[in-house]
Design a protein around this nucleic acid. Sequence first.
DNA 1: AATCGTTTCTTGTCTATACAAGATTGTAAC
DNA 2: GTTACAATCTTGTATAGACAAGAAACGATT
Lengths: 244, 244
Amino acid sequence: MPRSKFGDIYRDLKDRIESGEYPYQSLVPSENTLVTVYGCSRNTVRRALAGLIEKGYVQAIQGKGVRVLYRPASRTPFTLGRMESFRETAQRCRTHYQTRVVHFSMSQTDSALAAASGFPPGADVYHVERVRIIDGRAMVLEVSYFLRSVVPALTPEAAEQSVYAYLEKELGVQIMTSKRTITVEPAAPADRLYLDLGSYDCLAVITNQAFNADGILFEYTVSRYHPECFRFQDTASRRSKKAE
Amino acid sequence: MPRSKFGDIYRDLKDRIESGEYPYQSLVPSENTLVTVYGCSRNTVRRALAGLIEKGYVQAIQGKGVRVLYRPASRTPFTLGRMESFRETAQRCRTHYQTRVVHFSMSQTDSALAAASGFPPGADVYHVERVRIIDGRAMVLEVSYFLRSVVPALTPEAAEQSVYAYLEKELGVQIMTSKRTITVEPAAPADRLYLDLGSYDCLAVITNQAFNADGILFEYTVSRYHPECFRFQDTASRRSKKAE
DNA sequence: AATCGTTTCTTGTCTATACAAGATTGTAAC
DNA sequence: GTTACAATCTTGTATAGACAAGAAACGATT
């Protein structure tokens, strides 16, 4: 895959930080230094740094330098990244997982679903419900709707594997933007039916809207997580005067 | 407050999108058009657009334009933004709230707290526990630790008002970066003691590390939310080739 | 020794330009 | 009519330069 220059610099700096070459609380080399090191313009260096700032790896301090905030991660299993599929998260955490399709049908959006999902009313959709099983325990119930005008051919077999890999490789559909809402909800009968909830009576719920490269909302998924396998990390930084 | 040019453009475009002038799925004027409209360089326009992309307002499509993804928010009370204090959230949602300080002391970090918080072991800290009461119901329990070398003077009175306003105005301490982790945990006895949990037996827990303008970790807070007043929104976008 | 300025380093903002890459449109050739 | 190509939109990447603003180091003056 052909890559951009600032992406290369971003990754190089990220690797050096993660390896401990630039330890916690130290300053990375100044922008002008990095310009000579990487042989590029200052703007390009700054784009790489902007990426590290956004991800919480470093913090820029005007007049002083760029300070490392990253610390080797506490061993926390199954932390949801900012834009990962379930499969990617599970693989990264090296957990054994499998997927069971418990429902697969085609239908049309009624008014309630249209309001909740953002799909137009009466649109043709696939309706898929899957249970994610981690180390033998049913931990996540995912209720998904896919817009058939964007995803014309979906099969239970593809749903059992990774839908995203299928969409990307077979259909050339890519998720470009993803809007998520996280809430905590009481367990519903369906949760108890499909998941190994144990004594818990609540779940972490992620409601997700995915847009493809054309800006079309094509997927609406509600993921209901067993509390023990839910963890979400986030970094926010105040950009001096921009965001009010 | 003196503001930046790209910040002005960002806010102007954001207002126009929220007002419906650029509706859902439409394309905002092209970058070159915006350059002439705002009388600035293309880079400046692009910085403003980058902010809108990050916040999920729009999505850029190479070769086509910048598409609006924003839709007037469903009336969802008490949605946590990306970097807001409790007070700001409560005020934005126009809810009546008050704060009760249930614990206030000075102590030193033991090894367990140091490991969890990221503070150095043996550091002097304030230990504050507060209950947030929304419309008469005790909904949030916040356990906070403030590094005394950064926050030399903290009082129960300041803790009862807004600590952040106090820090910013009185001490000149600003939160620049904030790392958060969201989990769901079973209710502990302290939760039942202080909060009006009702029949729930789980809480949404936000663990927060705040860094000041010098990159010093100076606050560690664990906020335990009643599920009914917890909602967190997030937008992720895939930047073509940068982030792997 | 302490203080005040200057210099010099840092990051922050902004401009102007160039070319690459993707998408659309129009036109010419077939 | 259909196809192929070229022109022309769009956003994406990268360069080079300028000045502002904040922080630190140095030095001269007091």
